[in-house]
Amino acid sequence: MHESNIRQPIIQVENLIKTFGHLTALRGISFTLNRGDFFVLFGPNGAGKTTLIRILSALLHPTSGRVLIDNCDMSECAEELRQKIGVISHHVYLYNNLTAHENIVFFARLYNVANPEKRADQVIGEVGLIARKNDLVRTFSRGMYQRLSIARAIVHDPQIVLLDEPYTGLDQHAAQMLKNLLVKLHQAQRTIVMITHNLQRGVEIGTRLAIQVKGQIVFNEYQHQVDLAGFEELYFKYVGN
């Protein structure tokens, strides 16, 4: 990647509002992320964090406002932009009755990956499941599901990685593996947006920290401007214990 690309905006969110009937999940959210940012979003349950991720991944349309990715409005070029995004969520998006390898090859083909078989082996190896690659996914434990889900999300080498509580169900070893993978992606100048409830883990790994409460981002700063203790204090002040 060219150095000149690094500080260019890659995600621009402008006055995003999302309502579900009478419920307003997002109330005018705006922020800009640069290429290579590691944005960690904290917030209590029901703050609208998952709704935000779903809009950023082109699964949901906003009620108003817009999302620009690489200066392209998501409502106009969603299909093209999906190629640049990888999503890790509560859902693992894996077929129980396909093997790990078949699952990853299937998604690699959908994402137009060159040499999908070889790439599938590579990413399955990266998440430490190569010995189980020919096993049906339904035989996997929750942690193994989540690890394979990470492989699925990065199989097309996305420019943007969106993570919604990615540590759910992971044991210590798998959590460390995920952390190492995220550091590697960050070093490769991928833009990462992660939702987590774990303040320590988020502050440790993120370069930008934000707090979302009741559909609004109430705090958004670069990580070097806050330490863990100070951030915890801020978090509970905004969230209100």
């Binding site: 995004i85 859902h91 693992v92 077929y95 009755n97 998604f107 959908l110 699925r152």
Partner: peptide, 18 residues
Amino acid sequence: INEQENGCLYGLMLAPID
């Protein structure tokens, strides 16, 4: 049913596919 298990339909919808 297969598409509902593990949110696979969303997995398809996330992919760059019409």
